[in-house]
Design a protein around this nucleic acid. Structure first.
Lengths: 342, 342
DNA sequence: ATGAAAGCGCTAACAC
DNA sequence: GTGTTAGCGCTTTCAT
């Protein structure tokens, strides 16, 4: 904790009261104008607006929050174990989308990297009325700290949460099962029959669902589905998984990597082993990031609307905060991008 | 703008007053304890602490801010043009470092993606007393909107800022010139004589400085320094620059890419052209990210203390907010990582 | 060392 | 439609 110190030198911002004086109205009227209240005459609005402009008035957030009991701020919570994925283009884009949408509102984004140990501190902060709502970007199922959070404030999860809260939770996601199935089917359509997968973690819905999709496609085609290794969505884990797959000594002519970052690692290993894509092995994946686009050859993949996911999470959260009904589950469409890697 | 709506249903958090009642002291004393004031008896501290614990009291931020005129929050400003680099492991790590350090303080991090157009809105928000200080992560020189910001609030830049504010500005950086020189010298030591560079943008100090370092090394060795192409630190730009370099038709046996992300793009192109590292060309770069580590072969590079840069920016900013003197410029050491790519 | 009292700048009934 | 009046929950002189 940083101990509080000397108070600030009173920046003397213009206050609502000063605006009222200049505009020749009461503070209430200024407040109404600032808050877009419908019940103000055009003249009053004009006078106040002019005064605000003239003085360069900006409402004091703290005072507003204190008086209205709305914080105008939402938290973006990233458990520390997830923070190491910060560099993942997917996560980065989602965060960007959230920030982008909020910048067109009066809301402010509080970025919280939540330490595993005292998740309790974070939870308290969130439930103590410091934010109007929260977006949880948690990769793992073991973040039970946030399980009951939505009883206190509106919460939106990025992707279906794994905890018991799952049913009933509000989240934004894509149809991972079906997209993975399609990707795998694409491999099958290209004549691949010995298809492996580098799956995501078993404690993340995205990992589980994409694996299920892969299984479904193989089952539909009557193919074996035992060529599985798990990664954690990082390139390094993809490389390791690919090595394990190859070390099995069984022939593989197709690979579905559950994320482009893992595919990135895997492709490097394939190249090391002298395997050429798509001559020796077809490779398809998930996410249309730089790697998928610039790999040689570029990879057939599932493009998720990343920025849009962030934007929608923000939208859904804000409307929940405003007490609007709204669906708990928002599924966004993906785009299948066919290239020459299958 | 999202119009304000219904007030929140009064979450009835315990207040300082309730704590005072339970502890049997005045509100002032509770406040003192909460703020680590030295002038409180041990018994009072104990009683208050117990009461706080019992009630699960968390101070109301807004009230605190309003009364103390300190916001306990700092802004992390990322101009929109820089936001597209969000997925750059370097940027991601720096942000993480900032958030990490703040999580051990009472400060909150406000993430601002600042739209180019109304940078004025952002500037106003920052100067209106909404934050105690700001960290600017701007890649470009043309962000004049933030030039005068440090006249209003403490500001720390990530890397030496380009604007006229440069002299006098507070920032955290590494010695890009020298590190680049060392990397290039490494290439020369390995017998390379026709050394190219993929430089960063000409309007970013990191771009300029690393280019200068490359030039210095070549000058020291009496080698030509006209093999230059520019990128914007993204992989795609690195690939493009490499193509241009190769298209010149002049022989190249060494490459210094000003960032690992650009090296990533460049290496792909080299491979396309059948050039092998280090047999045909030595490659060194900047940043020790996943790509540099897992490229084939892994790349000799300059490892920047990325998380540490973020942590230090936060530390420097907080001490500036607390009015402590402190150096304006913080240079962090880098580590030269020699591998087999030269 | 502690308490009493006066706001911080705004919003939200409530009256007019 | 507009003004008046209470606070929102805390910090901070100023006494004691």
């Amino acid at each position: 904790m940083v101990p509080p110190t000397s108070p600030r030198p009173a920046a003397t911002q213009p206050t609502l009261e000063m605006v009222a004086a200049v505009a020749g109205v009461s503070r209430s009227t200024v407040s109404r104008v600032v808050n877009d209240s419908p019940n103000v005459t055009a003249e009053a609005v004009a006078a106040v607006t002019a005064a605000i402009e003239k003085l360069g008035y900006v409402p004091n957030r703290a005072a507003r929050i204190l008086a209205s009991r709305r914080t105008l701020s939402i938290a973006l919570v990233i458990p520390e174990n997830t923070a190491k994925f910060f560099a993942d283009p997917y996560l980065a884009a989602v965060i960007q989308g959230v920030a982008l949408h909020l910048s067109s509102t009066d809301y402010t984004l509080s970025l919280l990297i939540a330490p595993e140990k005292d998740a309790e501190k974070t939870r308290r902060y969130l439930t103590a009325g410091n934010v109007d709502g929260a977006i949880i970007l948690s990769h793992h199922s073991d973040d039970y700290a946030y399980t009951r959070l939505s009883q206190s404030i509106p919460v939106v999860f990025g992707g279906r949460p794994m905890s018991e809260e799952g049913p009933g939770a509000t989240y934004v996601d894509v149809d991972n099962v079906d997209a993975a199935r399609e990707m795998t089917a694409h491999l099958i359509d290209h004549g691949r029959t010995r298809i492996a997968t580098i799956a995501g973690p078993r404690n993340m819905s995205a990992g589980i669902d994409r694996l299920q999709g892969w299984r479904n496609a193989l089952a539909d085609a009557g193919l074996e589905s035992d060529r599985i290794e798990y990664g954690d969505f990082t390139p390094a884990s993809g490389a390791l998984a690919m090595r394990k797959l190859l070390d099995r000594g069984e022939p593989i002519d197709g690979l579905f990597a559950a994320s482009a970052q893992m595919a990135s690692g895997a492709v490097g290993v394939l190249r090391e082993h002298g395997l050429e894509i798509p001559r020796d092995i077809g490779v398809v994946t998930f996410d249309d990031d730089y790697f998928a686009q610039s790999s040689h050859p570029p990879l057939t993949t599932v493009a998720q609307p990343t920025i849009e996911v962030g934007v929608r999470m923000a939208q859904v959260l804000l409307s929940a905060i405003d007490g609007e009904p709204g669906e708990k589950i928002t599924m966004l469409p993906v785009a299948i991008i066919e290239r020459d890697s299958a």
